[in-house]
Design a protein around this nucleic acid. Structure first.
Lengths: 341, 341
DNA sequence: AACTGCATTGCAAACGTTTGCGTGGCTAAA
DNA sequence: TTTAGCCACGCAAACGTTTGCAATGCAGTT
């Protein structure tokens, strides 16, 4: 029962020819006669021969495998991205080695080592929240293992990345609300430490100045993204002198927390108080009370682009360019989409 | 810049000793003197030596890698499962090779081949909806590659699997509603073709007979799981002679579609009409109108158990047992959880 | 008849490791 | 002084494949 996989060697022995001939025959090497080529292929088919990739990997120094390290597989954003990555890699005949860091820098480092040992050809990374040093990734450069960062990218020069800029989307979001007649627009933003928080704030301010309205700092409150924190933030906004008639929330979780809370306060969603959020949950289609519009961050697209870049890097390396111009920096512009209900 | 990774051979050369000695030294083989052992380790550290796994794989015939094939990575259920799989595998020092079939039998077959070529030590599979033959999986037995199926399991004998039985959960769900005083309990079930549909129906009937109530077939309607289909199903139920005061829905999507529709009909959710569903979305905490209770299917636990089983198989193989008793058949009982609001 | 050239094929090294077995030197027992 | 025994290490094969180069045979050319 325990059949060992057929090897090239066995085929050679049966046919009374050398392994090199078999190898070449299977690869349609021109220097092999058609008759032997046919014989070899026939027998290979009968014996159900499948090349042993591990041997090929060793021989070629390439594994046709890319590593993916991201914080949390079960997050909707990342599961969508990994889905894209797998799809894209598959098309190019690459396989995906997967690992999650759980936002733990230590584990992230270990994973990088593991990926290196597995001799992945390249790496796709979305860095953890708490990661402060990127040396473990940068070390890979020495081994000629290209790294492409996506979504959560480190703030260091000379890297390849694809990310989504929240500023444009935010401008669109605020403009959308302004066009609808809102003048007091609140924002429940994230923690000050996150770049994403800054981008949102910038977008907000730009949208206001662009429309010649003055920016009221008290209308932007930050929160810790928890339900409790969101409630407090909303209360704070509602208690402000200029009570907002619309609110931009940091993400869908915050939006839903806020909507839930507002409902309890007998505020009519999107009538008394209009919501716009940043899409990170696929649930919009299933609910009654949802933000009127969402800023889309295109996780699938990000995963796809990042993989494309990595593929490109893998097929054109050797040029060994290290000049800054040789680095891919793809920014996907976030985009406001109105939610149909 | 393009540093080649250090090899055992280089270490041997520098130290003027043989590769075998280096190899053994690094593995703390007792037959190596402490002084050489120390020297080797020191130099290995300095040169940042990392073993080349592909070489080890080839040598050992084991890859410390498990393949995972599932239908759709971006589905919440599966992304939760894969998260568990990765976590569990990581603890045992295994790596995860990931692929999605998109419910395409043809692609599924190709993926199995690919996994085989990559010489994964074992495989974790949740089969596609349309998969009719399981030969491509069963073939792996010949190569001594164990396969553990989870969640969506094929109806064939002599396989290892872990799945979640919906019957118990359904009985609990119906009993829960009965206890709350409901007598006319509707069910929006899935397509007749799915096993899951059958399990739900069975549970429903058992719960009724257990409580000495008679089962009214007109209260169970099947739907195609789309929004449109759900609306029709709900309308049908509401138009029935015995208008139900509670409804069990096939899954969260269906539940939310139904709730949305019911809301439009000015039916008060969980008052005029109480809902119970099967959990497959993580959104319950973020919404206002949600089912009163959900039947939990434990995707994380399923992934974990399946991986544990595979690990066990990998470490105790060679016993080569083929007797039915040697097959793991783990049924996780679904369980009703009340949703806090 | 000798030579050139091409079409086929084989040899052997290489990729980086692990591991069974052999071998040298040394210590301690006889 | 011999010998048994152990310690520490080296040799070489093996894992399955690819590939540069050499070798063979044969037809065609001069």
């Amino acid at each position: 029962m325990q059949t060992k996989p057929t090897t090239i060697k066995e085929i050679a022995q049966i046919l009374g020819i050398s392994v090199s001939t078999v190898s070449r025959a299977l690869h349609d090497h021109p220097s092999i006669g058609l008759t032997t080529r046919a014989k070899v292929k026939k027998l290979a088919g009968e014996l159900n021969y499948e090349p042993n990739q591990t041997a090929i990997f060793l021989q070629k120094g390439k594994t046709l495998t890319i590593g993916v390290i991201l914080p949390e597989l079960s997050e909707a954003f990342f599961s969508s991205a990994i889905s894209a990555i797998e799809d894209t890699a598959y098309k190019k005949n690459y396989t995906v080695l997967l690992a999650q860091s759980h936002d733990d820098e230590q584990k992230e480092k270990q994973l990088v080592e593991k990926m290196k040992n597995h001799r992945v050809d390249g790496l796709l990374v979305s860095v953890g929240k708490n990661t402060s040093s990127y040396q473990h990734f940068e070390n890979l450069k020495k081994y000629n293992i290209p790294v492409v960062y996506f979504d959560r990218i480190p703030a260091i020069p000379n890297i390849h990345y694809v990310a989504c800029n929240m500023e444009i989307g935010t401008i669109e979001a605020v403009s959308y609300l302004l066009k609808k007649g809102h003048r007091a627009i609140g924002m429940i933003n994230g923690p000050q430490t996150m770049v994403a928080t800054g981008e949102r704030k910038e977008g907000y301010i730009k949208a206001m100045t662009k429309n010649r309205l003055k920016y009221d700092p008290s209308l932007i409150v930050s929160c810790d993204l928890t339900e409790e924190g969101t409630r407090k933030a909303l209360d704070e906004l509602l208690a402000s002198k200029r009570k907002p008639t619309a609110i931009v929330t940091f993400n869908d979780y915050v939006a839903l927390f806020a909507i839930k809370h507002a409902s309890k306060l007998n505020i009519r969603i999107n009538k008394d108080l209009e919501f716009v959020s940043y899409a990170n949950l696929p649930l919009i289609n299933y609910m009654e009370n949802i933000p009127a519009a969402s800023v889309e961050q295109f996780p699938y697209l990000q995963g796809q682009k990042a993989t494309d870049i990595l593929m490109d890097l893998l097929h054109h390396q050797g040029t060994g360019g290290n000049e800054p111009s040789a680095f891919y920096k793809v920014i996907i512009e976030s985009q406001l989409v109105e939610n149909k209900k």
